[in-house]
Each structure stands twice: as structure tokens, then as C-alpha cells.
Design a binder for these strands. Structure first.
Lengths: 205, 205
DNA sequence: ATTTGATTTAACCAACTGGTCAAAAGTAAA
DNA sequence: TTTACTTTTGACCAGTTGGTTAAATCAAAT
């Protein structure tokens, strides 16, 4: 039993991760995953019973990778300005490291909302306290009176969208040199923070 | 030749639109499109030679539906505040009427960037003037000194994201009553405008 | 009514898909 | 070495897929 074979399960997961996230559930082929892992196709079914089970494992793992930061943004009791800066920095950093996961999750979610809802119902984050905190800071005159739900969604939108729309943005702005896009994304960590801060925070005289 | 048969091509396109936009190129089945159109599967190949050709027709049509408003935002010479308000209103209105098209386009774009780039290269919008206009307004002290590219992407992100991420947002905020989501989206027309305006425009004393 | 051309269909096909299974190969203890 | 067990494989299967084809139906002109 050499190292290569012994961790076949890890090899499979790694290959499945790549293929599923790149091609999606419908586009992925079991044979391609097997090839990518350098093993026989039957071995996939030996470790994971079906394509669906393997997909579940990949999806949940991908989903959970993005949860902790969101939980921090929602559940921490720091002032919102501080939470926001930390969140945007960490979140964009994570997405840069896993640029295809957001598109993957959103697409599978759209394909089968009710099933994905079941997969995620143990993962739920509680938002009411978050909304209450924002409402409080609005009452305190720290934040302009925007709907807290809109603020949360805007924050996520600004972080996630450039990755979901990467091909078209790159074609428009960086068609000559795609490496510049990474620079652009790096700049976004501070740009997005400044943008939201400028939008919602009331400047004290 | 009754009306039902004579416009078979239109029936097919309508069915293809529905199935492709809902399931994507990979997920769509020619049989399902034929059933949806109420015709024989072979007739699909009679009017459109292949699944690919049919997909192309649907994709281009969908893509073009969103282009005019973006062109207006980019090419009109109105002051940016005015353009922005008109754009956001019209754009979100169009997406509400075609809520699944953004996800469809972004997904297919991500699946095959180079091919989609070819499909779109006749549709290109010219941005340099747009960037120059924003730069000028920054110089004039109308707009805060944000990177014009970031402003454009932020605007699109805030308009599009709630539709791409609809299932998860709905699960978190509107699990009890999904109709409320439409209300929320309607409110976004003004909310997004106020958000961006508050972020980038300099209040004159 | 017959001819001519376009439209529509049922039956079919080769390629591919996820999945199965019995046998082989490997592993470690007795 | 034999035994008992797990891991890995090649061959195979039934169902599905996009696509084809020859024949049938239809519509209009002669």
C-alpha cells in the first residue's frame, strides 16, 4: 500500500472538487473525475456510492468554506465599520483563492433551490441580531437610514460579483493582459470597503 | 398550413428560450424543448441544425436584451447622476421581467469564455469615453475619486446580484413569503440608486 | 386530380452516461 | 504459505442523448 493508493479517497475528492466546481453537476462526468484522480471509474462508486453523493460532499465543503466569515460579519458584536473592514478583506481574499466557488454555488443553488435548501438548513446563520445591530447604529446616527437587508446584500454583491462575472469584465477592461485582473481584484479589497463606508457612514463634523 | 404549424420556428425558439435559460446548455434536453414546443424532436433539427445552433440563437437574443441600457449608461453624455438613475431603474425593471437571464449568461460565459467572446465580439461596447467622463466629473469635484472601473462594476453588481443569488437570499430573508421578495426587488430600484449616489457624489454645501 | 415543394413525423442509430459485478491484486495476520 | 480481508480493475449493462432518415402529410399551383 503506497501513499499514492492509500489516500485514494482524498485523490477522488480533490479531482471531484476540480471537475464539479469547473463544470457543475450537469457538466461533470464521472469518467473525467476518475481520469483526473488517476484511478478507475468503478473506484469512485466504491468510495462514494453515486455521482450525487460525491457532488454533495464537494458542494457542502465548498459552501462551508465561505460560511465562517459571513458568520463573523453577522454575529460579532464589533461596531459595524470594523466588522465590515475585516469581513471584506478576508472574504475577497478567500474568493481570490477559490475564484470559481461562488459561481458554482450560485448555479447549483439556482438549479435546485429546494434540495440545496435542505443541504444547507443545518448551516443556517441567524440574521435578526445583525439587522437589529444595524438598526441601532442607524438610530445612534452612525449609519445612514438604509434598509439593513439591502446593506448586507450590497456588501455580498460587491465582494462576489467580480468573480462571477470575471470573463466579461476581463474582456472589457483587461483583454490585453489578464494578469491585471488580479491586481484589480486586490485593489477591490480597499475599494469596496471605501465605497460602502462612503455610502452608509455619516461623517462626524 | 394553420397558424400553429406555420410559426413552428417561433414555437421552437420560445420553448428553447425557456428550457435553455432555466437549465443551461448542459442541462437542457432537445426532447424537453420539443415537448415544450408541442412538436416532434426531429423538427428542431429541421429548423435549427443542431443543439448548438439553437443555443446560439437563444444566447445572443438574451444577451442583446440587456445591451441597450448598458450602452445608454456608457455612451450617453448626460451627467452621470442622471444617467445612473435612469439606468438603474430601467435595468432592474428589465431583469425583474427576465430574472433568470443574468444567471444564464454568466454561467455560460464561465463555461466557455473564449467561445462566448467570439459570439459577443460584434456586440462590444466602447468604454474609454465613459471612463473619461467619470474622470472629468471627479476632476470637477462632482464625484469622489473612485476608480471609474470600480464604479461601473459596482453598479452592475448591485443591480444583477440579487437575481443571481435569489434562492439563498430568499431562504434567509423571505422564507415565509416569497412574494415579499418581489417587493424587495422593487424597492431596490431606488435603494441601489441612493446607495451609489451616497457613495460617490460629493454633497455641495 | 396531379404535381411539386415544403413541413412533420415515427422509427432508428451510434455514442455516451452513471452504475454494477465478478475477478484480480494487494495487505497483513496466523 | 495460507487465510481473510480490503482495495482496484476491466468488462459489461441499461438508459439516455443528440442527431439522421425515409416516409408520410400538407399546401398551393398546374
Amino acid at each position: 500500500m503506497n501513499e499514492h493508493q492509500s489516500n485514494a479517497e482524498q485523490l477522488i475528492l480533490q479531482a471531484a472538487r476540480k471537475v464539479f466546481i469547473e463544470k457543475g453537476m450537469e457538466g461533470a462526468r464521472m469518467q473525467e473525475i476518475a481520469d483526473e484522480a488517476g484511478i478507475n471509474k468503478a473506484l469512485l462508486h466504491y468510495y462514494f456510492r453515486s455521482k450525487d453523493k460525491l457532488f454533495q460532499a464537494v458542494f457542502l465543503e465548498a459552501f462551508q468554506k465561505f460560511l465562517p466569515q459571513i458568520e463573523m460579519l453577522i454575529n460579532s458584536e464589533l461596531p459595524f465599520i470594523q466588522k465590515l473592514e475585516i469581513f471584506i478583506n478576508n472574504y475577497i481574499t478567500i474568493i481570490i483563492e477559490n475564484p470559481y466557488i461562488p459561481g458554482f454555488i450560485l448555479h447549483e443553488l439556482a438549479q435546485n433551490p429546494q434540495r440545496m435548501a435542505e443541504l444547507m438548513k443545518n448551516q443556517v446563520v441567524v440574521v435578526p441580531e445583525f439587522l437589529a445591530q444595524l438598526q441601532q447604529e442607524i438610530k445612534n446616527g452612525v449609519i445612514k437610514p438604509f434598509d439593513p437587508r439591502q446593506i448586507l446584500i450590497n456588501t455580498l454583491a460587491l465582494c462576489i460579483f467580480p468573480f462571477v462575472a470575471r470573463p466579461i469584465i476581463q474582456a472589457v477592461f483587461f483583454s490585453d493582459n489578464s494578469e491585471n485582473y488580479n491586481v484589480f481584484l486586490e485593489q477591490r479589497k480597499v475599494a469596496v470597503y471605501n465605497f460602502i463606508r462612503s455610502a452608509i457612514f455619516i461623517e462626524k463634523p
